[in-house]
Amino acid sequence: MPICQNCGGKWTWNQTINTIFKLKCPHCGNKQYESASSRIKGGCFALIPLLILPINAWLDFSVGTALILAAIFAIIVLGMYPFILKLSNEEEPYW
């Protein structure tokens, strides 16, 4: 789970999901930024739903089935996101 780099407060899963777009610490109220390593890991997890495209073509799923699988993968990725999120006090470049 993410730990605020300002106050050291550990965020819960619910707090992380609730602040996923603004990343404001629920304990001290300071703005936090996603670290570069966390953004790279998050980008890799975001590519998982793209696996549906070749599987869909290979197994000839219907459009509805492919959309349901994409939604399931998206929920899994969003559910795992708080576990890979690392915070920083300032915005970091990718490299």
Results as ranks from 00 to 15, higher is better:
Pro2Leu: 10
Pro2Ile: 13
Cys4Tyr: 01
Gln5Asp: 12
Asn6Met: 06
Cys7Lys: 07
Gly8Cys: 04
Gly9Tyr: 10
Trp11Arg: 01
Asn14Ile: 15
Thr16His: 07
Lys22Val: 14
Leu23Asn: 06
Leu23Glu: 01
Lys24Trp: 11
Lys24Ser: 13
Lys24Gly: 09
Lys24Gln: 13
Cys25Gly: 07
Cys25Met: 11
Cys25Val: 07
Pro26Gln: 09
His27Thr: 03
Gly29Tyr: 05
Asn30Leu: 13
Asn30Gln: 08
Asn30Cys: 12
Lys31Ser: 03
Lys31Arg: 01
Gln32Arg: 07
Tyr33Glu: 01
Glu34Phe: 15
Ser35Thr: 05
Ala36Lys: 05
Ser38Thr: 11
Arg39His: 08
Arg39Cys: 03
Arg39Pro: 01
Ile40Pro: 08
Lys41Gln: 10
Cys44Gly: 12
Phe45Thr: 01
Ala46Leu: 14
Leu47Asn: 13
Ile48Pro: 01
Pro49Trp: 04
Leu50Asn: 14
Leu53Lys: 11
Leu53Gln: 07
Ala57Pro: 05
Trp58Tyr: 15
Trp58Ala: 05
Trp58His: 05
Leu59Gly: 00
Leu59Ile: 11
Asp60Phe: 08
Asp60Met: 10
Ser62Gln: 05
Ser62Cys: 02
Ile68Pro: 09
Ile68Asn: 11
Ile68Leu: 13
Leu69Glu: 00
Ala71Leu: 15
Ile72Ala: 00
Phe73Arg: 09
Phe73Tyr: 14
Ala74His: 12
Ile75Gly: 14
Ile76His: 00
Val77Ile: 12
Met80Gln: 15
Tyr81Gln: 13
Tyr81Arg: 11
Pro82Arg: 12
Pro82Tyr: 02
Pro82Trp: 03
Phe83Ser: 08
Phe83Ala: 08
Ile84Trp: 02
Ile84Glu: 04
Ile84Tyr: 04
Leu85Tyr: 03
Lys86Gly: 04
Asn89Phe: 06
Asn89Trp: 06
Glu90His: 00
Glu90Met: 00
Glu90Lys: 02
Glu91Tyr: 00
Glu91Gln: 13
Glu92Met: 02
Glu92Trp: 02
Tyr94Ala: 15
